[in-house]
Design a protein around this nucleic acid. Structure first.
Length: 531
RNA sequence: GCCCCCAUCGUCUAGUGGCCUAGGACGUCACCCUUUCAAGGUGAAGAUCGCGGGUUCGAAUCCCGCUGGGGGUACCA
């Protein structure tokens, strides 16, 4: 594609795609179609008192989530997307997805799908888009041309090498580097001539020489002194728009009303405010969210275990749990609410209740929340969710379905649950050493054999019947129930921890129970008999 | 260096001048339940509201300074 910067001096502009392409519309429409469960019922619910007012007084908000495909969907990004989504749902607005892919060097197009998939997994479906900035270059060129013509921006002919050198010099002198604004002084005829002659240039914005105030909905008022910002670059010499520029042009084109993003963008905001002004547009309202830090208070990264949405998925977390957790990181509905459905969150959400401070990512609490959500998943669906994590092949699904109620309360993630299910498929390959030491006594072999004999004689293997057998046998043998139950448990699971033994036996069935109990008895006998 | 932001139990937070002897949740500990492990139930410990000054009859809540943390300072996003 030709990105000849010379085109900036002309006015040949390709048609602009302000609306999604047909394929994209269809795609997002179908996504929306599958996410019916996430609609919030705003129109009929708690909004009743306020909605009339809202609809008359202010237009429905239009918000966007604008990831760049330079990495996967980070939890920080996921939370930003969620807050935008909740805000849109709360006010009957529009949630727009925009891919910021103007950095050709760092872009990894294959990550776009990964991001979309992660958002879909989280249930954060979008109403418009995904727009790709790489497909909207005409729009940026047109805007740049206009700013140039209006004298709001100008060409600058310094090379990056020259600027780099100047930056280093300033650094060495202990001074703050700011672009000199030299390009402002070049007469427009000369500027046009040099551009036409093919001399490379960037386009810079003329920053107003006055302080810029940002009234942030979350962070409050921040005033940036005049002169603290220099004339930043709008268009690179290779014709690519820079982030600040494409963002503002698109926010105007998409009629964005509220910008909800991370505080790392707060220092950029005065630039954007100046740009919106230059573009002749009203700036949207801003809401900057505090950073999400790792448990150690450092910037969250892979080092902290998981940072990307798909990693949490791989860890066996439920999207609804992650969403609930993320919602609470910076926002609180008040009244001590913690566990909420997305619908509840959407009806309670407000930017005013977002706190400004950074927060740490507490995996423990996430795990707890996930465990809570896990309990509510019905067994058949749970089995499907578990499938990608591996189910024991040797075990009929009907058995797994019966095992699930026993194992579910003992697990916090799908990974843990899947692992716990393994015992229903295969006989223990090894025994817990401590368990063997404590319960592998010679006297326990006959106890195991008698237990097997007696439950074999039972007309059916109901847990109540098995328990009665066990209690009777323990009493007869003069031992506590635990002294019988633990060796049996060790035989059946190889460990000393499991769901209630008698219910487990009922699920495992007579054959498996016999085989495993007898195997341990044999092992004990073999070791007890000195050769 | 310069610019900007933040600061309540270990963690997430409630709190917007008197209702705070600072509330809830995770985590921790104890007890109960119990054939083990979880889950669940009950209870406890845990915050001189970062520090220092103001304002006020009264401050976690308002103002100033400091300290600590974070972000930005690109022809990255």
């Amino acid at each position: 594609m030709s990105l000849r910067t010379n085109s900036l001096t002309t006015n040949v502009e390709p048609q602009i795609a302000v609306t999604a392409t047909r394929a994209e519309s269809a795609r997002s429409a179908s996504r929306r179609g599958t996410s019916g469960k996430l609609t919030t019922g705003d129109d009929t619910g708690s909004l009743q008192t306020g909605s009339y007012h809202h609809k008359l007084m202010t237009p429905a908000p239009r918000v966007r989530f604008a990831p760049s495909p330079t990495g996967s969907l980070h939890v920080g990004g996921a939370r930003t997307a969620l807050y935008n989504w909740l805000f849109a749902r709360r006010h009957g607005g529009t949630f727009i997805l925009r891919i910021e892919d103007t950095d050709v060097d760092r872009n990894r197009p294959e990550l776009v799908d990964q991001i979309l998939e992660a958002m879909t997994w989280l249930g954060l479906t979008w109403d418009e888009g995904p727009y790709r900035q790489s497909e909207r270059y005409g729009l940026y060129r047109e805007a740049a041309t206009r700013l140039l013509a209006e004298g709001m921006a100008y060409r600058a002919f310094e090379t990056s090498e020259e600027l780099e050198a100047a930056r280093k010099a300033a650094d060495a002198a202990g001074e703050t580097f700011r672009y000199s604004g030299a390009g402002r002084a070049i007469p427009s005829e000369e500027s046009d001539r040099r551009a036409a002659a093919g001399e490379p240039f960037v386009i810079r914005l003329k920053m107003p020489n006055e302080p810029i105030v940002v009234d942030d909905l979350v962070q409050g008022r921040a005033e940036f002194p005049a002169g603290s910002l220099d004339d930043f670059v709008l268009m690179r010499s290779d014709g690519h728009p820079l982030y600040h520029f494409s963002v503002c042009v698109d926010d105007v084109a998409m009629r964005i009303t509220h910008v909800v993003r991370g505080v790392d963008h707060l220092p950029n905001t005065p630039k954007h405010v100046a740009l919106f002004r230059a573009l002749g547009a009203e700036a949207p309202k801003f809401a900057h969210l505090g950073m999400i830090l790792g448990a150690d208070g450092k910037k969250l990264s892979k080092r902290h275990g998981a940072a990307g949405a798909e990693e949490f998925r791989a860890q066996g977390l439920l999207p609804e749990a992650l969403v609930n957790f993320l919602a609470l990181l910076g926002w609180s509905p008040g009244e001590d609410r913690e566990r909420m459905t997305v619908a509840e969150m959407a009806s309670l959400f407000s930017l005013e209740r977002i706190g400004p401070s950074p927060s740490r990512f507490d995996h423990e609490k996430l795990a707890w929340l996930n465990g809570q959500y896990l309990q509510d998943v019905a067994e058949p669906r749970l089995l499907e969710l578990l499938r990608p994590f591996g189910l024991p092949e040797a075990c009929p699904e009907e058995t797994l379905l019966r095992a699930l109620p026993l194992q579910k309360p003992r697990a916090k993630t799908l990974v843990e649950l899947a692992q716990a299910l393994a015992v229903y498929g295969e006989d223990p390959a090894t025994y817990d050493p401590a368990g063997l030491k404590k319960f592998g006594k010679a006297a326990n072999a006959p106890l195991l054999r008698t237990f097997v004999e007696r439950i074999s004689a039972l007309p059916s293997l109901g847990h109540a019947g098995v328990e009665e057998v066990a209690r009777t046998l323990a009493a007869e043998s003069g031992v506590k129930l635990g002294d019988l139950a633990q060796p049996v448990r060790l035989a059946l699971t190889g460990t000393l921890a499991s769901p209630p033994l008698f219910e487990m036996i009922e699920v495992l069935g007579l054959e498996t129970t016999r085989r495993r109990a007898l195997a341990l008895a044999a092992k004990i006998e073999a070791e007890a008999a000195p050769s």
